Computed example of a mutant assay.
Amino acid sequence: MSTENEPDWPILVISLQDAAKRRAMVSKQLEALGLSFKFFDAIDGRSGLPAAYESQVDRAGTEAYFGRPMSDGQYACALSHLAVYRQIVEEKLPGAIILKDDAILGDAFALFLREK
């Protein structure tokens, strides 16, 4: 699955499908570090949580827990992370490095991944 210079776990970058500038910035960083990665399309909650996901949230429970309601964008973000974790399990991956598209990466990140 990995080459000598690649980490054992795939790098998955959570990003909204239309976030071209953010995708370009994180792509540039990862490519400069010589790391391969895949984008994982985030759930878009900017115009409300899609109805298909409503059954997966507990609005009353989260409001009781946090003392305030969560926004649809916050639910979409949490559900996006849940979806990527599910993919790791379904694909029987040994694990994964999960990044958001606003990550700021440096040489130490690549070194950390390559250390065995």
Rank of each mutant, 00 (worst) to 15 (best):
V26P: 05
V26D: 07
V26E: 09
S27I: 04
S27G: 07
L30R: 04
L30F: 10
A32W: 09
A32I: 06
L33N: 09
G34E: 08
G34V: 11
L35W: 02
S36A: 04
S36M: 11
S36I: 10
F37H: 04
K38S: 13
F39V: 13
F39W: 14
F40T: 05
D41I: 10
D41L: 08
D41Q: 05
A42P: 03
I43V: 15
I43F: 05
I43Y: 07
D44I: 08
D44S: 09
R46Y: 10
R46D: 06
R46N: 14
S47A: 13
L49V: 03
P50Y: 12
P50N: 03
P50M: 09
A52I: 11
A52E: 15
A52W: 04
Y53S: 05
E54R: 15
E54H: 15
E54V: 14
S55L: 09
S55G: 15
Q56M: 14
Q56F: 05
V57R: 10
D58Y: 14
D58A: 13
T62S: 12
E63W: 04
E63N: 06
E63V: 07
E63P: 05
E63I: 01
E63L: 08
A64N: 10
A64S: 13
Y65I: 05
Y65G: 00
G67F: 13
R68W: 10
P69A: 03
P69C: 09
P69E: 06
P69H: 02
M70D: 02
M70A: 12
M70I: 04
M70T: 03
M70S: 06
M70P: 00
S71V: 04
S71I: 04
S71T: 15
D72L: 01
D72W: 02
D72H: 06
G73H: 00
G73N: 02
Q74L: 10
Y75E: 01
Y75G: 00
Y75T: 01
A76V: 06
A76N: 06
A76M: 11
C77V: 02
C77K: 11
A78F: 04
A78G: 11
A78N: 09
A78K: 03
A78R: 06
L79A: 01
S80P: 04
S80W: 03
S80E: 08
H81L: 02
L82G: 00
L82P: 00
L82K: 14
L82D: 10
V84W: 07
R86L: 06
Q87P: 00
Q87H: 13
Q87T: 03
I88L: 03
V89E: 14
V89A: 15
V89L: 15
V89Q: 12
V89K: 15
